[in-house]
Design a protein around this nucleic acid. Structure first.
Lengths: 193, 193
DNA sequence: CTGGCATGTCAACACCTGTTGGCCTACAGT
DNA sequence: ACTGTAGGCCAACAGGTGTTGACATGCCAG
């Protein structure tokens, strides 16, 4: 896609190739999961030899680690209107989920691969709990509230983007936001326990 | 486990073997997913030769189809107290999820395998939508409401039993019920749209 | 002009997979 | 006693996997 005009020759810089590999890897991991996303297929998509993947990322696990690096971009929401934090969260995640394949790849791999699950736990601990801690009444509850929020978000993602339950796919963005926002709002800000 | 006293000999009936295979298959599919649950490993767990699996179930897909047959046992809930349907649903699913490995296997496989996803869609359509239709105000909304309910239940299952987010694992059954019941109640019975 | 390094390909290894067909053996019916 | 059949094992096939090392080739520095 981004073939630089300066070097019209057949040689490309390693950064370009590495980026192409990462993009192909994300697509394959997202659509096939860890086991069925073969290095050969990823290399073919990236237009290079499989051994290049090994050279740049060591092994398949290293490739996945690089391809699944993810910044949810949530901290900005911490200081938003506390009352509409639920709707903002749902909207943000729908955007993130449809922007690229990283979250879908993460979910598909996390469910069957131990390393993928560990990666998801890390993202949860480092990026979801702080958001909850910033808005919930008692910071000691933050982990539990973050888990509840994550469960609803992951569940909708599975139903809509992975298992493709027809009603979940058909629903409009606004409908999803309207239904889920109050749930997240309650999980984050409800008082008792 | 159930070695019959009548035939103390080395020979067992095919039904016993088939059941042993199914049990081993459910465990392997639940813990490893479709691709990494090898027929060789399943046969080893069942104490027989891999070729027996083929003889009884044709191929790996047939084995999964047999191992993932699932009756959620929900119809009984249809005529229960309409007000506490949310709590009853959460409790019921927590029971079902912890009773055996079938639901976990179904979820793990459904996320990476097309046939598994199709099986989940069928179960959703045949067993979840009718329940929603029986309790929600306008039966035309049943599919959407069932999808919302399923999203929250699947999400909690993933967080608690698959990805094992620590706070989701630590939460007691009663806590999970207390938090999720109002959500499901609203998804099923809320009036607007 | 000539090294050296970076980018890339090719061929192969060792292993594991689903799946198949042939062979053995103990039991039940006659 | 004999035989058919059901339950079971063994060895192998064909294909795909991650991974490795040797070899080629274009580019830039000296």
């Amino acid at each position: 896609m981004t073939t630089e005009a300066s070097a019209g020759g057949p040689r490309r810089t390693s950064e370009v190739t590495k980026a192409a590999i990462l993009e192909a890897a994300r697509e394959r991991f997202a659509s096939d999961g860890y086991e069925r996303a073969t290095i050969r297929a990823i290399a073919r998509d990236a237009g290079i030899d499989p051994s290049m993947v090994m050279r740049y990322y060591g092994n398949k696990e290293g490739l996945f680690a690089a391809a699944s690096e993810m910044d949810l971009g949530l901290p900005g929401l911490g200081r938003l209107p506390g009352k509409h934090i639920g709707a903002a969260l749902v909207t943000h995640f729908l955007d993130r989920w449809e922007a690229d394949d990283v979250l879908t790849a993460l979910l598909r791999v996390g469910v069957t691969n131990p390393a993928g699950a560990e990666r998801m736990r890390t993202i949860f601990a480092e990026q979801m709990i702080p958001v909850a801690a910033g808005v919930c009444p008692d910071p000691a509850d933050a982990p539990r509230r973050a888990a509840l929020v994550s469960s609803q978000i992951l569940g909708m993602a599975i139903a809509r983007y992975v298992l493709r339950f027809p009603p979940a796919v058909t629903m409009s963005r606004d409908e999803v936001v309207a239904w889920l926002a109050p749930t997240l709002q309650r999980y984050l800000t409800a008082e008792g326990a």
